[in-house]
Design a protein around this nucleic acid. Sequence first.
DNA 1: AATATATTTAAGCATTTGCTTAAATACGTA
DNA 2: TACGTATTTAAGCAAATGCTTAAATATATT
Lengths: 123, 123
Amino acid sequence: MKLEITCTRAEANHKQLHNCMETLDNMEESFQKMTKLLSIAGSDVRLKILYLLNLENELCPCDLADILKMSVPAISQHIRKIKDAGIISSRRDGQTLYYSLNRDETEIFNSIFESIELIRKTA
Amino acid sequence: MKLEITCTRAEANHKQLHNCMETLDNMEESFQKMTKLLSIAGSDVRLKILYLLNLENELCPCDLADILKMSVPAISQHIRKIKDAGIISSRRDGQTLYYSLNRDETEIFNSIFESIELIRKTA
DNA sequence: AATATATTTAAGCATTTGCTTAAATACGTA
DNA sequence: TACGTATTTAAGCAAATGCTTAAATATATT
């Protein structure tokens, strides 16, 4: 839509603005990946699922439904989102599917988990 | 809704599940705060706004609209969300409002910004 | 006071999200 | 093969999200 400059302020530093635009252009792919991860983690239920998988190493949808006091289909649909983003993998044992974090892909979550626990301590 | 145990698997470790529930209960407030921060950051536009404020220290809505090639009201509404979450503050200079990060409140964003730049380097 | 700029706010609307319920699929066991 | 359990998938729907346009507010300038 808007491709022209809207700021007419004397103070507006057009060179600065242009540099910002260029910086973002070069990082577009990185932003998309990070936005994807954060939008996954930015839900109460999904953040708890991720935290629990970090804590327990692996859990099945049924366990998660019990712990989070939610229906199994609701959990399953959250899991699908998380899995589609490449954050978790599954292992089958009989009828049960165990999900676990792909720890290589998701180092940022370690900082997030630490930060959650810091909030707890300082609150 | 569901308060009963749904897992009837022999392997289900009910003590483990109960411990998880208790852990989450004790961290409820921390999860809510972190979910709020991540849901704010989990939007392409808002993550870029935060990144730019980190980079440039302060910017006005008009600058952000130019850099992100979006309308001023759209930017303003994102800013309101970020501000309501306590992540940024404003300073007025004449007609212009300059927004900046409340750096004490948002240490997790430093990890996120670093992680974005790591994606860029390793991709 | 009148006008212009910067910003916010509100209304409207299309899209997305996240549940529910019901049905389908996968596996194990009698 | 028939039945039970674990899980996924699909349809439906209410609520949330994020833009657009238009109007309101705040400040500066003439």
